[in-house]
Design a protein around this nucleic acid. Structure first.
Ligand SMILES: [Mn+2]
Ligand SMILES: [Mn+2]
Ligand SMILES: [Zn+2]
Ligand SMILES: [Zn+2]
Lengths: 146, 146
DNA sequence: TTCATGTTTGTAATCATTACAGATTTAATA
DNA sequence: TATTAAATCTGTAATGATTACAAACATGAA
């Protein structure tokens, strides 16, 4: 993944979003951190370098990115929004032990765009969420639960 | 769907949950209202008849039901939990126009229990959420959008 | 009755997110 | 270059769903 400033600037301009310094920072963070961070995580990191950064700006920026299709919202935890730079339709797995959220590659006719309607209702967003125990956490228990 | 008190009482006892008056009320409401209500909606309705009912009891009861597998949580809106008496794995559609949440019947190997693991991670919960415009809302616009 | 345990209730706290208004920046225009 | 309107950013206050907590109440055994 290319994460230089020029590339990020182009990405914003391609969507008609003015590439301000704050917006470049947020988009750069999301390209570097593909682990579906929270607004808080993004804020904490950026505020280290730019102490004047406001949390409201983080939220404003993320919402602007969402409206312009630059990012996707992942609401798998139910408690807060996680942000995803990967805007291709894909599924997610949340480990209830370690809390990590990882992308899931499964054959899905909805993600593939083969099915765009259900009973006459138009599908605009697809969210496939799985919850359980990830492989690493299972192995950590030394015994593989069935 | 049978919604008499005897049936509801049995359902609680079968899960080892003491059938208190408040719990019977909440479970009865959920059996009568399969439209995935919020805690607020459940509270408002029950409080009409039982003014002493506390909202905390509603939350306590719903969480108890969740722990005992009597109901499922649907977090499709991202803003609040919706509660579902239907504990068979199934998908949901949220209309961004009218806000209704409806059950979706799609062939899904995860819901069917055919696939219980992904890359060594154990699947315990499946959430299939679709968002868009429902059939009725599309027809209301008089023109069927593509 | 006494006592322990479980349940319910009301209020206060929490936490993510949004509303709002003032300050600052940007960019167009004169 | 100076003026000025629009856009953006910032900090604080408000919102809303949910939980924490402690007191009141109910239940059932000893
Ligand atoms: Mn992802
Ligand atoms: Mn349902
Ligand atoms: Zn894990
Ligand atoms: Zn609708």
């Amino acid at each position: 993944m290319i994460t230089n400033m020029k590339h990020i600037k182009n990405k914003l301009e391609a969507k008609g979003v003015k590439p301000t310094y704050q917006r470049l920072c947020v988009l750069k963070y999301l390209e570097k951190n593909m682990n579906h961070p929270t607004a808080e995580m993004i804020y904490e990191n950026i505020a280290k370098k730019i102490p004047t950064m406001s949390k409201t700006t983080i939220y404003n920026t993320l919402n602007l990115f969402l409206e312009n299709g630059l990012i996707h919202a992942v609401t798998i935890t139910g408690t807060e929004v996680r942000y995803d730079i990967n805007t291709f339709s894909h599924h997610h797995f949340l480990c209830r032990k370690c809390g990590k959220i990882v992308d899931i590659e499964v054959k899905c006719p909805f993600c593939d765009g083969e099915i765009t309607q259900i009973n006459g209702s138009k599908i605009e967003e697809i969210h496939g969420y799985f919850k359980g125990i990830c492989k690493k956490c299972r192995e950590k228990n030394n015994k593989v639960e069935r």
